[in-house]
Simulated scan of single mutants.
Amino acid sequence: MHVPQALPVRRCEAVKPTLPRGMERDGFVALVDAVASSLGIGAAAMMTFRTMIAATRPSAFKRGPDEPCCYLSQNEIAHKRGVTACRIREHEAALVRAGLIEKRTMANGARSGFSGCGVFFGVAIKRVDEFLSLRDEIEADRRAHARLRGQRSSHKRHLKGILCELIECQGQTAAVERIYQTFVEWPSGQALHRMSLEELQNHEAEAEALTISASQLLHEMHDRPLENERSHIQDTTQDSNQVICNDPVDTRSVGKPTRMITDKPQPDGSVHCMEKQDEAASEAHKSKFIQNLGSDRLYGLCSEEMKMWLDIERQKRGRLDFHSFVIAGQKRLPELGIHPSAWEEAVGLLDEDAAMLCVLITDAKVADPEVTILSAGAYLRGMVRLSGLVL
């Protein structure tokens, strides 16, 4: 009787993790570097990660039977890094906790390519999709942080201009003093970079509320229609060449308003100081151009999406002023796919009200079905640079 032989059992070998199509080893390292801080990995441990992964074969990340592995001993890695082996052990422990490496060593801790023992990177390669999503979140937060810093900067410039006029017209009243005292406690621009996104969001909202409060106080003082108001976007923008020229103030003092508002030391002299006369006249001329357009006409030129942001600003303020257009324009930038650096460049080359006009024009062109714009950011930057040359 014929007894059939048992067929050999085929073992399912685990498929080694590989990078997605289009990503090489160096791109993988750049990806890990972008998310390292969110994983709790510091700069020193990341340097050790780079040193170990540089000892692997780039092709192992894409094809071949072997998982990418670093066989260097801790002493060899320490020598390459210029640190002690103890520091390398600390870094490796941190990388293991973060899920970036897996250590497979002999009983005595030795590593060898012959025995397949060392530091393996498959655990991190498996997480590429997770890291890509995390990088996108980090970049979105970074852009939001930059946009909020820009808005706070706009609030600061606008509020300084309002305070100057309030002090000039009213003197140091109790209401003005309260606004000023809160204003001087605002964190510096450098301090903003150290804030978390949530902290910055709260501060920007408080700064906007204070600016709106001051603007309403000024509006009540003028008691005239908004369309006739002077733009307060630029603190250098005045109806004449008058500028405040006093010594820097001791912020602990009260009752000396005119020297509180300056950002930098000004020369001694009267309030009719005529230095930088041409520059001030140019700024005043541009602001009058914006003023003559009027808020209603500007609003009519905007896209429906921009009008939505302006309606939000109108609801906050009870009316539209030119600062509303500046803030609405900055909030529209991410929806257009424009990096905050484009706004910073526009303000640096032109001024804030002209930069706002460029954003409004770019937004209107994008919304026009008869106009094809491949990159709103490139269009805005080109317009700003051309305007800067003309001016």
Score class of each variant (00 low, 15 high):
Arg230Cys: 07
Ser154Gly: 13
Phe120Val: 02
Gly116Thr: 10
His222Glu: 13
Asn202Thr: 10
Glu168Met: 00
Gly171Arg: 04
Gly189Pro: 01
Ser213Arg: 10
Glu204Ile: 03
Glu204Tyr: 06
Cys117Gly: 09
Ala209Gln: 08
Trp186Glu: 11
His219Trp: 12
Glu227Val: 12
Ala174Glu: 11
Leu166Ser: 03
Cys164Tyr: 04
Arg152Glu: 14
Ile162Asn: 03
Asp136Ile: 00
Arg147Leu: 15
Cys117His: 14
Leu218Ala: 08
Thr105Asn: 12
Met106Phe: 04
Glu137Val: 00
Phe121Asp: 02
Arg157Trp: 04
Asn202Ser: 12
Arg224Cys: 08
Gly189Ser: 10
His219Ala: 14
Leu163Gln: 06
Gly189Lys: 08
Ile125Leu: 08
Arg224Leu: 13
Ile162Leu: 14
Thr105Gln: 15
His193Ala: 13
Asn108Ala: 10
Leu132Gly: 00
Gly150Ser: 14
Glu165Ser: 07
Glu208Asn: 07
Thr211Trp: 04
Ser112Glu: 15
Ala144Ile: 10
Glu206Arg: 13
Gly109Cys: 05
Arg152Cys: 11
Arg157Gln: 06
Ala146His: 10
Thr173Ile: 01
Cys164Thr: 08
Ala140Val: 15
Pro187Trp: 13
Arg149Val: 11
Phe120Leu: 06
Cys164Ala: 11
Glu198Cys: 06
Leu218Gln: 08
Ser115Lys: 11
Ala146Glu: 15
Gly118Phe: 04
Leu226Val: 13
Ile167Gly: 06
Gln172Gly: 03
Glu229Thr: 05
Arg152Asp: 13
Val128Arg: 06
Arg135His: 00
Glu229Tyr: 07
Leu210Glu: 13
Arg224Thr: 07
Ala174His: 04
Arg143Ile: 01
Glu220Trp: 05
Tyr180His: 09
Leu132Gln: 05
Gly109Asn: 11
Ala175Asp: 13
Gln151Leu: 05
Cys117Arg: 15
Ala144Lys: 07
Phe121Ile: 02
Gln172Ser: 07
Asn108Ser: 09
Arg143Val: 06
Phe131Trp: 00
Ala124Ile: 01
Ala110Thr: 13
Ala146Cys: 06
Phe120Ile: 03
Leu192Val: 02
Ser154Glu: 13
Gln151Cys: 05
Leu210Lys: 10
Thr211Asp: 08
Gly109Ile: 02
Arg230Asn: 05
Val184Trp: 04
Phe121Arg: 01
Gln151Tyr: 01
Glu204Lys: 09
Lys126Ser: 09
Glu165Ile: 00
Ala191Thr: 10
Ser112Val: 05
Asp223Lys: 11
His158Gly: 01
Gln151Phe: 00
Leu210Trp: 06
Met195Leu: 11
Asn228Gly: 08
Glu165His: 02
Glu199Ile: 05
Arg127Ile: 00
His145Val: 02
Arg194Thr: 15
Leu217Lys: 12
Val119Ala: 06
Gln216Ser: 09
Glu199Gln: 15
Thr173Phe: 02
